[in-house]
């Protein structure tokens, strides 16, 4: 890594201009990837807590009694497809195709909202089946983990819609394509966390 950075730096030295970046890479993008790296430790901790406690149901329901795999499979599929629409938005933004960018951003947000809606439905169903937040260690750790993920998706939806509004009114400070790309990175990260949650929490029985 050191060598990569330094070679880039040398190549850059010849470049005039003081808005310099030693690596030639964008500050925002470096910061975003680092942030996503730190998020791995956040979700890792929540997933580990769930793994430790998934079998401790007390008098409440067991995971296999409440999970509705077909339903969750559909909402997982929806979130996965939102990654496709997101990457198409990023690709359109790089081509400066504003119409497509706007369209894909809105579709992505809608898919995300569908996922969150599904989660709300799922939580309600669990609650009605006697699995409240504090029913058991399993239920608390499940709700904290998937709830955190849901909050991340919700924040993503807000960012997507805000971004769309800002693009439309030409209010994005800095590079438009890069801003779309950064929100895209966040969105994809939320998706890959769900890829893990879907397998480890839903598909592998306790």
């Amino acid at each position: 890594m050191w060598f990569t950075l330094d070679n880039l730096a040398t190549a850059h030295d010849t470049h005039e201009g003081a808005a310099h970046s030693s690596t030639g890479l964008s500050n925002v993008k470096l910061g975003m990837w680092l942030f996503l790296g730190t998020e791995c430790l956040l979700f890792g901790g929540l997933i580990s807590t769930y793994m430790l406690y998934r079998g401790r149901v007390g008098t409440g329901p067991r995971p296999s009694q409440v999970f509705d795999i077909p339903f969750t499979s559909v909402s997982s599929f929806v979130l996965l497809m939102s990654s496709l629409t997101m990457v198409l938005a990023v690709s359109a933004a790089h081509k400066r195709d504003d119409r497509s960018t706007n369209l894909w951003l809105v579709i992505t947000a809608l898919l995300g909202a569908t996922f969150v809606g599904g989660q709300v439905y799922e939580f309600t169903a669990f609650y009605n089946e006697g699995m409240g937040f504090s029913t058991s260690l399993f239920s608390s750790s499940f709700f904290v983990l998937t709830g955190f993920h849901g909050v991340h998706v919700t924040v993503g939806i807000i960012m997507l819609l805000a971004l769309r509004g800002m693009l439309k009114n030409n209010k994005v400070p800095g590079s438009r394509a890069e801003t779309v790309e950064m929100i895209g990175l966040y969105w994809h990260f939320v998706d890959i966390v769900w890829i893990i949650i879907f397998t480890l929490i839903y598909l592998i029985p306790a």
Binding site: K29, G37, G44
Partner: peptide, 18 residues
């Protein structure tokens, strides 16, 4: 750029490890 992979996978591997 490899630097991005390096930053992200450091976090991921650290998380899996600990």
């Amino acid at each position: 750029n490899k630097v991005f992979s390096w930053l992200f996978y450091t976090g991921l591997i650290l998380a899996v490890g600990v």
